[in-house]
Design a protein around this nucleic acid. Structure first.
Lengths: 213, 213
DNA sequence: ATATGTGAATTGATTCACAGCG
DNA sequence: CGCTGTGAATCAATTCACATAT
């Protein structure tokens, strides 16, 4: 039975998981939908509806068991197995991602970088080895890569994505401001901070009414 | 008459604007809702509904005038005036953002950085000057800063946000995986790539049905 | 002919209200 | 008594269908 959860709900589940991880660190045992909602910026109603997807029953009168719910969400979101990632494009952003400390105790292992620039290949600009793009197919198999963090220039984004798909990667975290064309079995998630700036600009205008979201 | 457009619509308008900017560069004169939708990854119906908000009538039988629609969306989104931004937290990510080339011909000017680490202050790690956090209030006024790119460690995020609000900034682009508590006149947009990775992980699981979004 | 613009229909998501359980 | 779990009701967003303009 293939599960199917709307993308917007998945986003909130990710947010709950983050809060629960914090709470567990602080050794909090129980949390109510009210508290969880406040910390994640949504209503208690919303939290309870979302948690239907998790198989972690709460205790009426008391709330949810933090440890149990955290484990359950973690499992639901596929974070109990390791995922291997590579950074495609070792420019400034790629390098920053390579040394980003907050993958933390998470299930993501950033294994390597790729670049077309010969001057970046082989060296260790960061703590990661960097390979040439045409080594992608063999390295994907060798390192069992699942996910690409795509940080190439806009002009190279689609052709890089094509290579990724061909090499067998199934998830792309796309940092370029481009809508990538990929086959349906490949999932793309967008991380576009310039688009974020533009959304901000809209809402900062004096005659625009604040709308949540 | 304060305009009010749902956040999800604003996101799509930003995407259309990007496509239109490309088309204008390629000297394309007209674009249909069909083409625009394909390039932005949404349906033609959706495009036409969204463009109700823009005052740029299309030509029946022909489509929209690229230049006109681009200008209109740009104005609607508040991108015809300059916005001044500062980077809060000059770690790796902050430095990468400081030197990011694609603000391009956009209306965002990243003026300066701030940090609490004395070793980062004053120097020019990047092309930007870096000030101490306690200079924030005066610099916000002096440089007429509008927007903060928040790239401090998670543990410092809320207190930094408080300082930003107090100093009078009204827009925060939040790179930390935290839900910031801010007064209603302050807008926060989230850029959380680890959350993006986690959403990817969910959809990469073999028993999860692909849902769009 | 062709593609926009928009009311109506549909689908989906959120909020409500309250029964049920601890 | 407090808080979860969930059907029902509301609200919002998307899709459809077609009249309308060029």
């Amino acid at each position: 039975m293939p599960r199917s959860i709307p993308s917007i709900t998945v986003s909130r589940l990710v947010a709950y998981l983050r809060v629960l991880t914090d709470l567990e660190l602080q050794q909090v045992d129980y949390v109510t939908s009210d508290e969880l909602g406040a910390a994640a910026g949504v209503s208690a109603h919303q939290v309870r509806k979302d948690l239907v997807h998790a198989e972690a029953p709460g205790t009426r009168g008391r709330g949810y068991t933090v440890a149990l719910l955290r484990r359950e969400l973690s499992s639901l979101l596929g974070l109990t197995r390791p995922w291997n990632a590579a950074i495609i494009g070792m420019g400034r952003l790629g390098q920053a991602l390579a040394d980003y400390p907050y993958y933390g105790n998470s299930s993501f292992n950033v294994k390597t970088g790729f670049d077309i620039d010969p001057s970046k290949i082989g060296q260790r600009l960061t703590s990661l080895p960097v390979y040439a793009m045409d080594e992608l197919p063999q390295r994907v198999k060798e390192l069992e890569l699942d996910i690409a963090l795509l940080t190439v220039p806009v002009s190279a984004a689609q052709s890089a994505a094509n290579s990724l798909v061909e090499a067998g990667l199934r998830g792309i975290l796309n940092f370029t401001p481009t809508v990538l064309a990929v086959p349906p079995q490949v999932r793309v998630e967008q991380v576009d901070f310039v688009a974020g700036l533009k959304r901000l600009a809209f809402y900062l205008q004096p005659d625009v009414a604040p709308a949540s979201g």
